[in-house]
Structures are given as C-alpha cells and as structure tokens.
Design a protein around this nucleic acid. Sequence first.
DNA 1: CCTACCGATCGGTAGG
DNA 2: CCTACCGATCGGTAGG
Lengths: 207, 207
Amino acid sequence: MAATESQNKAKLTRKEQIESIATALFKQRGFAATSMRDLASAVGIEAASIYAHVRSKEEILQSICFKMANEFFAELAEIESQSITYTQKLRQVITAHIKIITHNIAASTVFQQEWRHLSEPFLTDFLSLREKYEHRIRELIQQGIETGEFISSDTRFVTRTLLSSLNGITQWYKLDGELSPEAIAGNLADLFLNGLNTHKDDRPKYH
Amino acid sequence: MAATESQNKAKLTRKEQIESIATALFKQRGFAATSMRDLASAVGIEAASIYAHVRSKEEILQSICFKMANEFFAELAEIESQSITYTQKLRQVITAHIKIITHNIAASTVFQQEWRHLSEPFLTDFLSLREKYEHRIRELIQQGIETGEFISSDTRFVTRTLLSSLNGITQWYKLDGELSPEAIAGNLADLFLNGLNTHKDDRPKYH
DNA sequence: CCTACCGATCGGTAGG
DNA sequence: CCTACCGATCGGTAGG
C-alpha cells in the first residue's frame, strides 16, 4: 500500500526522469556513444548515483524498446477486433502507428535504431516481437486481398514498405511542422491505397 | 606514372580492404561500438598498423558516406537528362536507387545510420548533399504533377515517404531472397504509382 | 607493419 | 546521492 502510494504520487519519479533524459540522449548520439557520465550530467547528479535508480545502461535501453513495442501491440489488437473493412483497418493501423510515433519521437527513434545493442535474451525477444507485429499487419493486407479490396500483391514486400514509410516519419516529423499526425496518416493511407498516378494504365505485368 | 600504375594493379589495396571490412563492422555493430582493435583484428594486423593506411576512424566513415552520396548523384543526373515522361523518370530513379543499395548493402546501411558521427564540416556537407538529393527528386514529382501525370499531392511528404521506402530496403534485402533488385523496383514503382486499392473511390477529401 | 606506450574515458562497485 | 576508486578499453602516437 505504501509502495502503491509512492508510485501514484508526484509527476515524474527520478527513475522516470533518468529514462526520459536517456531516451533523448540515445536518440541524439546513439546508445553506444552516450556515456553514463553524459547522462548523469544531463540529469544533474554524479555518474555513480544513476545506479541507485537503474541497474545498468542497457536496462534503460530495454525499458525503452519494450515499452514502445507494447504500445504498438495494444493499438493493433484494438483495431483487429473491430468489424470494419480491411481498407478501414489499414487506415486505422496507419493512424495508430503514426500517433504512437509522433507522441514519442525520441523513444521511437531509439526503438528503431538502437535495439541491436540489446544483449540476449532481450535481443531475440525484441526481434520476435517485431516479426510478430509485421506478421499481423501482413495478415491484414492478405485478408484485404482475399476480399477483393486490395489488388493481388507481394504482401511481404508491401508490409515492409509500409513499415519503412511509417518508421521513417521519426526522421522528419517536427512538432511545429506543417503536417499534423492525422494529416500525415491521411496522406500516407491515400498514397498506399490509391497511388500517385492519375490513370491506372501504367502498370507493367509483374504480377 | 608510377603512382598511377600502383593504383591500377592488384585487386584490392590494403586501404580498400580495411575500408571494406570496416564497412561491414560499422553496419553490424555501429560506428561508435566498433573499435580500431576490432577492425585491426578482423583485418589480421595490429591496431597501430591501421594508421599506416588511414588517418583516423572517422576518415573511414567519411569515405563510406561520401562515396555513397556520389553514387546516388551520378545515377540521378543521368536520369534527369533523359527525355521521357515523369512516370518513367520516377521508375528509373527507383530502379537506380535500389540498384545502388542492393549492390552496397553494408555501405548503404552505414550511409543511412552512422552519418551523425561525422564531425564538422563533414556533417554539414553530408546533410546538404542529402537535402539536395531529396530536393531533386521532389522537383521531379512536382513536374509530374504539373504535366498531369501525377495527382496533386504534398510533394515534400511523398518524396520523404518514397525515400523511406527505398532506404528501408537495406533492412530486409537478402542476396538469396525471393526478390531481385529489379523485381523490388517494379513492385515499389507500381505501389507508389497505382496503390493497393482495386477501386479509387476510397479517397477522403484531404486535398 | 610491429612493439611499446600515452592520457582519457568507459561501465560499474564499495562504502557510506 | 556522494566520494573514491576499479580494471578494461578507447583512439591514437613514437620510433623503428
């Protein structure tokens, strides 16, 4: 009970503050190039004091990576459970993914670029989660093809391309930019669903 | 003349061999997490001996990043000079970019992910080149819109999305995989030009 | 290309 | 949360 109380009060525990600042630094310089002394100095304490709140440098990375993974899965499960067309599901997946990314730009960047510094068994777990997420989106596209909503395509390729486009948003999204997360989602869904061409006679016979 | 001769002979100079192995290591572990001792050991010499061929660790990174940039620009200039439709130009840009990436997977990955470890003035130069490349592709899409080939869209957004999709290929392309570079290029061009949807009545009114 | 070595910095611990 | 400190490792140089 006392433990629960201490978790509930206050805005940000010191541990959360450390993780938040670490996330920004890992994004800026990369995990390997960020030292615990850099982190401590940014927090305003001594390097050794960090270890009162955190077991190791890698533990911080683990926390960032798996928290982000959980966010993506929570939204995906919600969408999968709905009774709507696959076109609508795809639009919602795009919207949800972009919402998560734009609300956690630094953590998303670390999630995307720094996971390789995880040690085992975290590395294997992480890659397995990523594979599962991709697989479930691929399933969604496959089912859209079977209902006739989407054209027949290489679903593995389409899914990877979609995820690259989604994850690439971390590299250019600006809070003060001209495009809101919702506008980005709308544009991206339009592009993937309808393409750039004004007519559809361009397609060679790959399929 | 003697200098020219020594450049022309042999398969790979020691310097080229060092850069090639460094590229693979930088891709695998990242620039910051790769030590000169790792590199030396992979080459089969002592760490200090590396410095007989290379001025610093960063010089290797500079070489990788700017060589890749030059490759992209050479292909782009070639395509821009042709008299073909913008649809065809876009297809060729996609094909050329993918060709370069798939032929230099490790160097492309380093180019994309490790450039932030460049020091000034290289960092600024590099970002300026990247911006120039994006700008020229954006111009190409803008012109395609003006001729009526492409639908009116946010060209900045479309260009960034295309580049994310192209660069994401380094993350999943396998030499022994099911898709050849040409097939990937065809699929990607089809997706961006025509989209996934079997009909075009899905588009909401964002534009 | 090697041996020998430099000062700096790393992640982390002991003990309070 | 601090002082004091550990052994390991870092990028790089001197001198041959």
